[in-house]
Nucleic acid binder design. Structure first.
Lengths: 328, 328
DNA sequence: TTGTATGCGTTATCAG
DNA sequence: CTGATAACGCATACAA
């Protein structure tokens, strides 16, 4: 039993009683070709009737470019926040005929994957060698960098992350704190988010007339967390902005181990509203980012970069909320 | 300045002084064509010199099938464990010329993505409609189901997860517990792991002559966790196997809220060795799964399914460890 | 406004 | 081993 032959545009043409070229014109509504409305409808009807789906491989071969958006993600845990972002981004771009595909990266093999897929765009939440970026761009791929900005390349998400840091410090100041610390991640792979968040805290300190935050790296182990808690305490820091909820939770555990408590001895505020945040001792105050809005902004960047006419140009909606629990 | 033309197999043939067909034979080492070793080397040299990469689009168009393995993932948070699994699987299959690509799914658009990519195999950690599976298989895609098994389709990872449940109960029994509970996830999306783990606990109970576990769903909120803790306590359960560390941590918080403590009033054991586990109060005893081994097994399944000659057939190494802390 | 013809880069077949 | 040639399915310049 022969495997069912694929439905091609030729089949559609035959069914609609037009030429294959016409089918192509209609389906890609080519601007410099006027097609009679009645013909268009016949083509669409035939497409539906036969269940025609264009062959991506053939399109790619012909155009030298696929309709894929390659999402590169560093090999870090993806919390519900990150998953939500990816999900929204996927849905948003899908709506514009782009297929989002994700690659969890260690780093080396991206180049070959890129060549294989010939994606329309690459959105990178992972370090991407300058040379690779250059190659991709030279070949016409639109590259969006959401990693760091040390390499002379702006991080498109930096603004939002700066706002997150601002919200943390603003809340602490509103609670009367004047000397704050910043709990930085030990994992360099999250630099892309760490740097702008810290920058936001710094800006906030400057604006409120406070001395800059005392930055300490807090590794995810009990000893490190305890030591950090004591050190901040010793320099009269009364509140700490943590890079994220995991570090905040570690710090709370460190406080307990040091015989201190939050928010009395040291107030702690996180970022993400991790599902575990409410179970911390005490329950963790944190910043929640609404990924729908963040994703919409990112999707827009991509569409604009691909020069799609349908990129929105509206101001992004507010995308972060303060979740007050007990730790700050 | 014209965009650099692509290097094709014809270029390689010219460079190596052979015919294009020969290049194809060499590169795909076709069995029914004997090629002189010296010729082969010339071809490889030319490939390297010109930096030739076959066009995946053309290959796919011709063969009707790409070298891509599509990894479907449900839209649940991916902890470090899951990320590690994906990373290892990617690396393992890459070594065999297969490109792993991930799609975070809400569910509907898989079909079109599948048609677009024409993947060699689909590995699904997400629900996949029976009809879709059938379509894919009919078209020659090898489908691996790692989701549930309610649909008459075995879950290839079930055995390993059963072992995980066994380890939980074995540890509790070794600590003298005789009446145990099971903390089930409220999120149905993790059924694929939940069911076999619970099954493992049940088997263990049967084998040790205990009554089956008292199963309760524990949602990730304080009230639910507190209520569950009290309920188990009331039925003289002395220890609980939690589906994963998140639920275990929630339960520990619930115990505290109910004025109880672990392991005295109720011992708790989780699964995953989540980074937060050591910061729980008390630090959480849990089962750590070594994803390198799990991934290797999965990669093997895929290779065997694709009838690659290079699929290993060795027994998988031990892939789980008990991490004893204080909660059980 | 529609149809014809060509090429994108492979793989595969077949006669030498 | 080579050389020639036919698909694979689509988009597009050009002819009608």
């Amino acid at each position: 039993m022969a495997r069912a032959r694929r439905v091609t545009s030729i089949d559609v043409a035959r069914e609609a009683g037009v030429s294959q070229a016409t089918v192509s014109y209609v389906l890609n509504n080519v601007s410099h070709q006027k097609i009679a409305e009645e013909t268009r409808q016949r083509v669409f009807a035939a497409v539906r009737k036969l269940g025609y789906t264009p062959s991506a491989a053939a399109r790619t071969l012909r155009l030298g470019r696929s309709d894929i958006v390659l999402l590169l993600i560093a090999n870090i845990p993806l919390g519900s926040t990150a998953i939500e972002l990816i999900e929204h981004l996927t849905a948003d771009l899908e709506r514009h005929g782009l297929s989002v595909i994700t690659r969890i990266e260690s780093g080396r093999t991206v180049a070959s994957l890129w060549k294989d897929l010939a994606p329309a765009a690459v959105v990178s939440f992972a370090p991407l060698a300058r040379q690779h970026r250059a190659d991709m761009r030279a070949a016409g791929t639109y590259v969006v960098n959401v990693w760091g900005d040390s390499d002379g390349e702006p991080n498109v998400m930096a603004q939002g992350q700066i706002r997150v840091g601002r919200m943390q410090i603003d809340h602490l100041v509103s609670r009367g704190h004047a000397r704050v610390g910043y709990a930085a991640p030990a994992d360099a792979r999250v630099r892309a988010f760490f740097e702008p968040r810290l920058e936001g805290v710094r800006q906030g300190c400057a604006e409120h007339g406070l001395t800059p935050p005392s930055v300490r790296e807090v590794a995810l182990d009990m000893d490190a967390a305890t030591a950090a808690a004591r050190a901040w305490r010793d320099e009269d820091v009364t509140a700490v902005c943590a890079f994220n909820d995991e570090i905040a939770i570690a710090l709370l555990a460190g406080l307990r181990a040091a015989g201190l408590s939050a928010p009395g001895d040291l107030a702690v505020i996180g970022v993400d509203d991790n599902p575990m945040a409410r179970f911390a001792e005490p329950p963790l105050t944190t910043i929640d980012q609404h990924m729908g809005a963040v994703a919409a902004e990112l999707a827009d960047t991509v569409l604009a970069g691909l020069e799609r006419p349908d990129a929105r140009r509206s101001a992004p909606p507010e995308s972060t909320t303060l979740v007050i629990r007990r730790s700050a």
